[in-house]
Simulated scan of single mutants.
Amino acid sequence: MPDAAHRKHGDMPAPQPDYQMAEELVIDDLETLKVIADPLRLRILELMHKPQTVKKIARKLEMTPTKLYYHINLLEKHGLIVLVDTRIVSGIIEKHYLAAARGFRLASALLSPGETGESEALVITLDGLFAGTKQDILRALRQGILQPEHEQPTRHLKFWQGGLHLTPEQAQEFYDRVEALWAEYLELSHQQRDSLPECQSYQTLYMLWPSLYEHDSED
């Protein structure tokens, strides 16, 4: 795909320099979900917490810009990123993009099971989440950021998997406390992301769902 910077000036969407990221964007169609579920596009979105050019994103991802234009165009087409500025650099129009929101959520209706009893949207989401998580963990391990035997526990991989036998009230309390803790540290992360160079990026994947598995109990 040709570089968008080489299109005629009149063909480009107008930049929105005053655009402010929304706290949350609800995804309510399968096509947009398929776009955002791609692990590479999720990484691009994470890097666009502040205005970025394709060239800067490519450098951070250790890729060539030409490999990103297709993904950038898809993200922009589906309203997941916003063009906020254009500048002329060495005679070429340089575009600056910003993520449309800090977070993205699936509309509940999109997760409803179809005639087969499964939700295509949920399958797409789970595939994207697990594939992206696996790629990121292995990349961190290869580059030495993740060190399972390091003396500092914060360099380790932490994960828990298991069942909880709870009443509906206890499950709601558990959910509320985890959500509140997540919101607290997410806000802290936003505040210091670009101001404290000693900060390390951490990824989390938290899931809670009612399960068909029965838990063993002692007689």
Rank of each mutant, 00 (worst) to 15 (best):
S108P: 08
V82K: 15
D38V: 05
K60F: 06
L42N: 05
T66H: 06
L74K: 12
R59N: 09
L74V: 01
Y70M: 13
M63S: 10
K56R: 10
R102W: 15
L83Q: 09
M63R: 15
H49W: 11
L106R: 11
K50V: 13
I36M: 00
T66Y: 04
D85I: 07
P65W: 02
I36Y: 02
L74Q: 14
L61P: 05
N73V: 02
D38R: 01
V84T: 15
D85H: 09
P65I: 00
V54A: 09
R41I: 00
I36E: 01
I93Y: 10
I93W: 07
H96C: 08
V84P: 02
E94P: 01
L68Y: 07
E76L: 06
H96L: 11
E62H: 10
R105C: 11
G103H: 15
S90F: 12
A58T: 03
Y97M: 10
E94V: 05
D85M: 13
K55H: 09
S112N: 08
V54T: 13
A99I: 04
L47T: 05
L110A: 11
E115P: 04
S112T: 11
K56A: 12
D38I: 02
L80H: 06
R87F: 04
K67G: 02
K95P: 10
K60N: 14
K50A: 12
V35W: 00
N73W: 05
I88H: 08
M63L: 15
L110G: 02
P39R: 03
R41S: 03
G103L: 13
E62F: 08
R41D: 01
A107L: 06
I44N: 02
P39K: 02
H78G: 02
I72D: 07
S108M: 12
M63A: 10
P65S: 02
G114T: 07
L106M: 13
P113L: 02
E115R: 15
H96D: 08
P39Y: 03
E46H: 09
P51L: 07
I93N: 07
A100W: 06
R59A: 14
K55S: 11
L74A: 05
H78M: 11
